[in-house]
């Protein structure tokens, strides 16, 4: 049995498969399906200081090989998460990455402070790339200066490993990525959803109440792979890949491109066991080839094309 643990900065994950924020709830919803502690980790639904009701319906719609969502960061709020959800995750020994969202730098700092005191949180993922809220979110993630500022402020507020989730829509993603690295990020997560639209021709109206929504699923995988490849070449900190990963073969592409870990997202909707299946598939691949995870990471960067 090969060693599947990977290091992302100072944090060691059991295996390279995490779940993507917004597609795995607070983790416990998946406990009836499998032992969620067997994953490398889970990224929580984006947490804000106060609970948020989210956007009016319709919020989701299916598209070719993907879906659009405009949930609007509905969540229970950081307090309810810490008191109601986290103790149960801690009991199970789940590696928890708290995804946080705020519309001001001060609020990001308050959130980080609050989570820093909680045992059972293993890292913080900064959501500076949500396309579905009016303030905060993508406004930070598009701007290298603001991204750096948020990252530096949160960095100063917590000792926890800090990951920053990249928007694919930044005009100069390289500058955003470098700014986050320079401000003390321990890893970059890429990519968040890409904004899209759908119109119902029968009813002659837009399908989402928010008009636009974030596109996720296999449809965005090649774009995500290109961005992850570029980021790995640009920064020295680890990159965690996300974007349409549904199978071990998908995940392997991102590891071979140089990602240290992957997040399974939309696939958990059509197959709730997908994250575990991906982790098992990567293990089987390693065993079959006699390779370790470390042997895989970035290997396609140096190989000739087939």
């Amino acid at each position: 049995m090969t060693h599947q643990a990977v290091r992302v900065g100072s944090l060691t994950l059991k295996n390279p498969v995490l779940t993507a924020s917004g597609t795995f709830g607070y983790g416990l919803e998946f406990a009836p399906f499998f032992d969620i502690e067997d994953l490398g980790g889970i990224c929580t639904k984006g947490l804000s200081l106060a609970p948020r009701p989210g956007n009016p319906p319709p919020r989701i719609c299916e598209t070719p090989a993907g879906m659009l969502n405009a949930i609007g960061l509905a969540n229970v709020g950081v307090e309810a998460f810490c008191t109601e959800k986290l103790p149960l995750l801690r009991e199970r020994g789940v590696t928890v990455i708290a995804n946080i969202f705020a519309s001001s730098i001060d609020d990001f700092v308050t959130l980080a402070n609050r989570l820093d005191r909680e045992p059972g949180i293993h890292a913080i993922e900064l959501n500076v790339s949500c396309p579905n809220v009016k303030t905060g979110g993508i406004e930070f993630g598009r701007d290298p200066h603001l991204s750096g500022e948020v990252t530096a402020a949160v960095r100063a507020a917590t000792r926890l490993p800090l990951w920053v989730k990249m928007s694919p829509e930044a005009a100069d993603l390289a500058a955003v990525a470098r700014a986050c690295q320079d401000a003390g990020a321990d890893a970059l997560t890429a990519i968040n959803t890409i904004r899209g639209m759908a119109i119902d021709p029968e009813r002659m109206c837009v399908r989402l109440a928010n008009r636009t929504g974030g596109l996720s699923g296999p449809a965005i995988r090649p774009i995500a792979l290109r961005i992850v490849w570029d980021l790995v070449g640009l920064v020295d900190i680890p990159v965690i890949a996300i974007g349409g990963i549904a199978t071990a073969a998908d995940a392997l592409q991102f590891l071979l491109a140089g990602a240290h870990a992957v997040q399974v997202g939309t696939a958990s909707f059509s197959d709730p066991v997908a994250p575990l299946t991906v982790a098992q598939g990567i293990r089987a691949f390693c065993e079959h080839r006699g390779l370790s995870i470390d042997d895989l990471i970035g290997r396609a960067r140096t190989s000739a094309t087939s």
Binding site: T23, P53, P57, P58, R59, N69, A74, S268
Partner: peptide, 23 residues
């Protein structure tokens, strides 16, 4: 009947406006 992606409270795609406010 509401559009939903997961069916068990994760995707948050099936909100129904509540009389008490929120969804």
């Amino acid at each position: 009947e509401a559009p939903m992606a997961c069916g068990f409270g994760v995707c948050l795609g099936c909100p129904v406006p509540a009389v008490s406010g929120g969804y």
